[in-house]
């Protein structure tokens, strides 16, 4: 019995906005340091040290932004859908706050993936944009993120906005496997995936290593941004509580 209660304690703690606010506050300096180091090293390595691509020359260096942004745009959608589902099923407000915070980050990263892709497409395909399956499904992902953002603001009741946008986020998950498989199902201009979990990656080690650093950097950045957006959402939603009031009055003196 005692074991059961400690086992579930973390789950209830996670549901407390105050607990999340305090623990994430302690993570912030570490997340900032890790983000700066990983992205700084990764960018220098990728832009200056990695050898140029035999066919694409230096334009391939855009991969170091395009691939991590695309990966996190997709991973961020999972986070938004899962936290939305947890919020709907167990009625955990903290989970809804995470979901709401994931929307602007995901939208920005999806835009970054599309933008860097367009800029990369010009020198390698001769065009900024094609209506190919991968690119079109990524554009749909952007609209899904924007839809979730809009729904959150469309209701006078915060709770209704949370629930409606969580449902849209869940419905939109059908798009995710389509994005992943689009380069295999349709023969298009977009090259097949560079990074593969199950088989060897189609990229030379010298080019792969900085990409791995950049992907790690983007993951840490994502956690940092999610913490910041969620903390902002917490003080807004919990402004009636004593601890947020105390926070507001104590910060005025610093």
């Amino acid at each position: 019995m005692a074991m059961g209660s400690t086992k579930w304690q973390w789950f209830y703690r996670l549901g407390s906005p105050r607990w999340f606010y305090e623990i994430s506050g302690r993570w912030l300096p570490w997340l900032v340091c890790a983000t700066i180091i990983l992205l700084g090293v990764g960018l220098f390595w990728g832009l200056a040290l990695a050898p140029p691509d035999a066919r694409q020359g230096h334009s391939f260096r855009i991969i170091y932004l395009h691939v991590p942004a695309s990966l996190l745009a997709l991973a961020g959608y999972y986070i938004m859908a899962v936290t939305g589902a947890v919020g709907l099923i167990w009625r955990i407000k903290m989970s809804f706050m995470l979901m709401k915070s994931a929307a602007p980050i995901g939208a920005a990263l999806t835009f970054m993936a599309l933008f860097t892709g367009a800029v990369w497409g010009k020198p390698s395909w001769g065009t900024y944009w094609v209506w190919d399956a991968r690119i079109t499904s990524m554009l749909i992902l952007l609209f899904l993120y924007l839809g979730v953002l809009a729904l959150q603001r469309a209701f006078t009741s915060v709770e209704a906005g949370y629930r409606a946008s969580a449902i849209l986020a869940l419905v939109g998950t059908v798009n995710i496997p389509i994005i992943y498989k689009s380069v295999d199902w349709w023969h298009t201009l977009h090259q097949p995936a560079t990074l593969k979990l199950t088989s060897a990656s189609s990229i030379h080690t010298d080019m792969l290593e900085p990409l791995v650093v950049m992907v790690c950097g983007f993951y840490v950045f994502y956690v940092l941004a999610l913490c910041l957006f969620t903390r902002s959402e917490i003080v807004q939603q919990e402004s009636a509580t004593a601890w947020v009031k105390a926070l507001a009055t104590s910060e005025s003196r610093t």
Partner: peptide
Amino acid sequence: MDGHGAYV
């Protein structure tokens, strides 16, 4: 970058 600098 051999003409690719503007894009990168």
